[in-house]
Each structure stands twice: as C-alpha cells, then as structure tokens.
Design a protein around this nucleic acid. Structure first.
Length: 418
DNA sequence: TCTGGGGTCCTAGGACCC
DNA sequence: TCTGGGGTCCTAGGACCC
C-alpha cells in the first residue's frame, strides 16, 4: 500500500507549554531561553514579528525585549518533557503507527484511512488542543519530506488553518515552486548555498535535478531528498526506534571554571547524569569520552578530549565518575578559563548482553542493586542523592533565572486558581 | 560582562591485512 | 625511475536535525 504520512508539529512548542499554564501570555510576545539564559530557543509568533531571531544571544536582543515588554522565560525541561508525553499519548489514540520524531513532532501513518484526510487531521488537531491545550499544525503527504513541506505551509499560511493535505493536490508543482531551498527537510545552509550556485531556487528546481549530479555533490542523502520530493518514499515510518548510539551530557558553566577541583566536580556531575540516562535505557557503556573547552569567543582557546575504555561494559555511576576524574587529570591545564565540559558515552550495549571480562573481579550484582536504589530514591525526591565527587556548592552550576514552575510534575508547584 | 544541548548519518582517509 | 590490488575496520569531521 502507498504510504501516507501525517506530520504533527506543536506550534512554538516551549512557548505554548508556558501559555497553557499562564493564559495571560496569549497574544503577547514571548520567548524562551536556552541554558544559562544564553540564547533564544523559542519564540511566539508575536516575538517573531518583532524580528527576534532563532538562536540569537539574549543580550543582543535585550533592547528589543525591554522596548516591546516581551515576556522572557528560562527553559523548563521538566514541564516541556511532560507536556510532550501528553501530546504523544493523545496522538497514539488515533493510530498505533506513530513515530515520535522529536520532543514536539510525530509522524503518523495514515495509509488506509478514509479520505478526506484533511478532515481527519482537523479532528486530531482539535482533540490535542482540547486534551492538552497544545496548538498543533498537521501536514499530510506521501513522503516524510513532502509532509514536512505540507506542515510548513499549513503553519504559515492562514488559509489552511493549520492542516494541509498534499495527497489530493493536483498542482504539487505549483506548491513546490513556492518553497525556498532552505525550508526543505535535509537541506541546510551549506547545501542551499551550493544549490543556489548551481542556479536552483526552489523545491521544484531541486525535485527536477539530475540524480547523478546530486549523487556526486551531496551523496546518497541528497539523492534521497530529491526522490522524496518526487513522491518516492525513502524514509519509512520508524515506529520501533533503533537502539541509541550515544549518550551526551554537556553544559556550559554558569561562571567560568579555573580550578581542577571544580572542573572535576562538573565532570563528575555530568558522568553521574549520564549514568542515570544509561540505566533508564537499560544500556551499558564501553567507551567514555570527556571533553573540556574554553569559550569559543575568546583569544586564549583550548579544547581537548580523552577517551577511557572500560574493560567490561558498565552502567555503574561510580565507575563512570572515576574514569571521568582520571580524564580531567589529563585534560586540565592551568591559566585557562573553562566554559564547558561534557561526557560522551559510546559503544553502548544492552545491559543484559554485557560480555564479562575473564579477570573482572567487580561484584556486578551488588553494583546493580546500589544503582537501582539510588535511581529509585532520586525518582521520588526533589533534592536527589548525589555522589561526593560532584561537590557541595556547585557555584559553577548552570543558571535559570526566569524559570516557570513544574506545574504538572511537582505537588508543591501546581497551578493555583484564584 | 552575557553566545544552548543532544542527537543522527555519511564520507574520506588511514591502518592493517592477505 | 620503477613502487599491486582489494578488502575491512576505525575514526574524525562535516552536515544536518530539533
């Protein structure tokens, strides 16, 4: 059967999450900032209209924010993750064939559903709004790349009111001729520049490009994009997500770190968090890379990384922390202002398929029970257990000065009705 | 003064082997 | 001066995504 994809995408997701619990924000310009309140990562339509760019540093738009009384929030990942879960659960009531593509997007397979599919899309849209408060846009088409385009048009053109089905479009060429290259899924800034140099301007141009030329310039990824624009499906629905390849925990510091001790606290903190993620996914790790870096924007730059190989794959935070500390011993240099470090776990294997080393003397069962106990306690407490190596004061810690409450996940922070 | 975080896939090139 | 051919595996870096 021919594939039919619906891409459901939450509008301005982080901003919409804030608005669900703070209705006064509706109709007002709102932005949400990244960690340390560094960059703008979400904007309401009103903020976009005021020329607040995506990803711009907050200090660069400070004047605009003041002038237009823009509402500003720090990221509240706990709230956003919970809202995402609610939206995805709602979508799953419409079809079991769902691929959660990101925190705010999912592909649904609508093959076999009775047309007109736009009506069905509208029902999905209304249900999500009613059950979760989240506004979504829906694009429907025969390939994921075309569904992305449909979604983009649905969101930005008032006449579609948030839902567009390109399957029954008899003038697909006319639609594609309106889509600039940069808006195509898989075409980033580099590829767009190369394509423009070759005289192309729109998705229609790219869909008609010579395949061997594309293969030569953009590899198989480029070829797939062209076929997808032509309506041939190259990316099927992944409703059984493939095993994860890596786990990363990295953060910029609230203030620069100069001492080895504090750098170790940070590395230990991130290693512990990486260990939690590892166990959440029932994985063990065989390679751990730790990297440290100064700011990208200063003269005296330094970046370095070190990789530690575990003899036996592990998911024990104490082992990750120990390895991270030894990595910092090699990476630390005096007289640098470190701005960021990170822990990367690679070589992930399912926990129940770990190959024991012949000379491994560790009591794996004891370690597993300890980690289970720590995770169980931490899932219930607001002030979790942590390892001594993480340090007590953490004055380098990431800062969130304007964070909203955990409205949906913390009894002490429920919204109040006056 | 202040510039995010976490992922994926692909490719080219080197090491190594027969 | 001349200096195999082909395969595999690994890694770093590029490009992209949200």
């Amino acid at each position: 059967m021919k594939e039919i994809f619906a891409l459901v995408d939450c509008n301005n997701f982080y901003v919409s999450c804030e608005r669900v619990f703070n209705p006064k924000l509706s109709g007002r310009p709102v932005v949400v900032l990244s960690n340390n309140d560094g960059c703008v990562v979400a904007r309401s339509n009103e903020a976009k209209a005021l020329n607040i760019g995506m990803g711009v540093p907050a200090f660069e738009v400070a004047d605009l924010i003041k002038k237009h009384k823009i509402e500003v929030f720090s990221s509240n990942y706990t709230l956003y993750a919970d809202m995402s879960r609610r939206v995805m659960q709602t979508l799953a009531t419409f079809t079991p064939e769902i691929e959660i593509y990101s925190i705010d997007e999912a592909f649904l397979n609508l093959a076999g559903f009775e047309p007109p599919l736009a009506d069905y899309g509208r029902r999905i849209q209304q249900t999500v709004r009613q059950w979760t408060g989240m506004p979504v846009s829906i694009g429907i088409a025969g390939t994921k790349t075309l569904a992305k385009i449909a979604n983009h048009l649905a969101k930005h053109s008032a006449k579609f009111d948030g839902v567009l089905d390109l399957c029954d479009s008899n003038n697909l060429e006319k639609v594609l001729a309106e889509v600039p290259l940069e808006k195509i899924w898989g075409i980033g800034i580099r590829s767009a520049i190369k394509l423009k140099r070759a005289g192309m301007k729109t998705a229609l141009d790219l869909s008609k490009a010579d395949i061997s030329w594309i293969r030569n310039k953009f590899g198989v990824v480029g070829v797939r994009t062209v076929y997808e624009l032509r309506g041939s499906c190259c990316y099927p629905l992944e409703d059984n997500p493939p095993a994860r390849q890596s786990i990363v925990v990295s953060r910029m510091f609230g203030v620069p770190i100069e001492s080895a001790e504090q750098l170790k606290e940070a590395a230990a903190t991130y290693a512990a968090r990486a260990g939690e993620k590892l166990r959440e996914h029932n994985l063990a790790v065989s390679l751990q890379t730790v990297f440290v870096t100064t700011s990208r924007f200063i003269k005296n730059k330094y970046f370095n990384s070190h990789t530690f190989a575990f003899e036996t794959a592990t998911s024990d935070s104490t082992e990750l922390i120990k390895a991270a500390l030894s990595s910092i011993d090699r990476l630390y240099r005096k007289n640098y202002k470190f701005k960021k470090c990170g822990v990367v776990l690679l070589g992930l294997v399912p926990h129940d398929r770990v190959q024991r080393n012949l000379f491994d003397k560790t009591d794996r069962e004891k370690s597993r029970r300890l980690m289970q106990a720590v995770d169980a306690v931490n899932s219930r407490l607001n002030t979790p257990l942590y390892w001594a190596a993480e340090g007590l004061s953490k004055n380098w810690h990431v800062q969130f000065r304007r964070r909203s409450k955990k409205f949906t996940t913390c009894w002490d922070e429920l919204p109040e009705v006056a």
